[in-house]
Design a protein around this nucleic acid. Structure first.
Length: 437
DNA sequence: ATAGCCTTGACC
DNA sequence: GGTCAAGGCTAT
């Protein structure tokens, strides 16, 4: 296996693909995009796009359209609030711990992949499949998903980006999904620094308003403080490795959610009829849904599934709920990062048991078995002192499903009483599922 | 206006 | 005292 691509990819600026020079305004970017972002925010610049606001931003073309470049900066998660209103130089900001943690996670991931790569060269994978045609090694013959930065090479406004998730030719839904709640065509009219509408780093009293800290502030990432350490000398099953590999960049997911929340907050402040807390949560759940769809698009299982993936997407709203419940699981069971990787595939595959019209049932079943086998192998190796860890984890899935069903019913009820925001994707998927099954 | 290099300063 | 992300400076 060739891991150099993954390693190299982490060195690329998510905005233009140039060489990364360090963490700037919330994430790893190149020096030029750092400067561009700083100039734009500090000088409160306004740009317009001469084309259709979807210009491609790469190293050679980044100068051509500052509008789309700035839009992309925001889309990938660069933080307005990291630009200092008082222009104070030097020192450290509140993102310090987040950078540190991200670095540690990247290091862990790299070490895990490298160590397993060396091991796999020496010894063949332990796993065997009852149906060789569907075995993981076969699946891997397709290029493994390597792009952890789905936005690279594209410059899309949130609306376009979200629409693109469903317009993809290979993975589009067979059911019509109406356009998502429209976000402004212009890039979010970010508040001016002078107005202090953005919580700035300094002086610290701006922090009295918690509007822009939300869930993604470095000190509040509940549940996702993984209890990791893969024991030295452990042979990690290739499937686990694959999940670790196709996991999305956590910092970017956080940044995107944060940017979305900031945007919602701004909308809340400007619109006359404000959303209820429940309405806001629906928006946030939608955002999570996009993350999961993104994950699925890069996951080997779904690349292989091809046709029946449409059916499975319909179940994604359940996964959003599963995700929320997972936070509780993490706290209760102290799952480590490698086990967390099983959440999406395992939960998803177990949920597909409900799908009556699954076109490729044997493949799904085979994958489900492989996911379980890999998890079993991993838990036995990593926790020999807790032989029932595997069954403990597995036992939680019925609970998750039960909770998902409850949440689904609640969502339906809320929908019927008109409390779900228009064009909510969760609802659309719920409808699609009911008409499909 | 851009982007590469320089200076600064809180935190380890 | 070293690190490294802030802001600053300045050729292009």
């Amino acid at each position: 296996m060739d891991y150099s691509y993954d390693t190299d990819l982490e060195e690329l600026c998510p905005v233009c693909g140039d060489k990364v020079s360090g963490y700037h305004y919330g994430l790893l970017t190149c020096e030029s995009c750092k400067g561009f972002f700083k100039r734009t925010v500090q000088n409160n610049k306004r740009y317009t796009c001469a084309e259709s606001q979807d210009c491609n931003i790469d190293k050679t073309q980044r100068k051509r359209c500052p509008f789309c470049r700035f839009q992309k900066c925001l889309n990938v998660g660069m933080r307005l609030e990291a630009v200092r209103a008082d222009r104070m130089r030097g020192g450290r900001n509140k993102f310090g711990p987040m950078y540190k943690r991200d670095r540690a996670l990247k290091q862990q991931k790299k070490a895990l992949i490298r160590a397993s790569g060396l091991k796999m060269e020496a010894t063949p994978p332990l796993m065997s499949s009852p149906q060789p045609d569907y075995s993981f090694s076969t699946a891997l013959s397709t290029p493994a998903p390597k792009n952890t930065h789905p936005n690279i090479g594209t410059s899309v406004a949130p609306t376009d980006y979200e629409r693109n998730l469903y317009a993809s030719s290979s993975l589009s839904l067979s059911i019509p999904i109406p356009a998502h709640t429209p976000l402004p065509a212009q890039y979010p009219a970010y508040p001016t620094l002078a107005s202090h509408a953005i919580k700035s780093e300094y002086p610290d009293h701006y922090t009295s308003s918690e509007h822009y800290t939300c869930a993604s502030s470095p000190e509040s990432v509940p549940g996702y403080t993984y209890v990791d350490q893969t024991p030295p000398g452990l042979t990690v099953p290739p499937l686990v490795l694959e999940f670790v590999r196709c996991e999305q960049d956590e910092l970017q997911v956080q940044s995107k959610i944060s940017a979305h929340l900031a945007h919602l907050q701004q909308e809340q402040n400007s619109r006359s009829e404000r959303l209820s807390t429940f309405g806001l949560m629906c928006h946030i759940a939608d955002q999570t849904l996009f993350s999961i769809v993104e994950w699925a698009r890069s996951c080997i299982f779904f690349k292989e599934l091809k046709v029946s993936v449409n059916t499975i997407f319909i179940h994604f709203h359940l996964l959003v709920l599963v995700h929320l419940v997972l936070v509780i699981l993490v706290l209760q069971l102290k799952l480590n990062k490698n086990e967390i990787c099983f959440n999406n595939p395992a939960a998803l595959l177990s949920l597909t048991a409900d799908v009556k019209l699954l076109e490729n049932q044997p493949y799904v079943e085979s994958m489900y078995e492989q996911v379980n086998a890999a998890l079993l192998e991993y838990t036995l190796c990593a926790y020999p002192q807790f032989p029932d860890r595997f069954s403990q984890i597995l036992l939680r899935f019925p609970e998750l499903r039960a909770l998902s069903t409850q949440a689904e019913d609640y969502l339906c009820y809320k929908h019927l009483s008109g409390e779900v925001p228009c064009n909510n994707l969760l609802i659309e998927m719920l409808h699609a599922k009911r008409t499909c099954i």
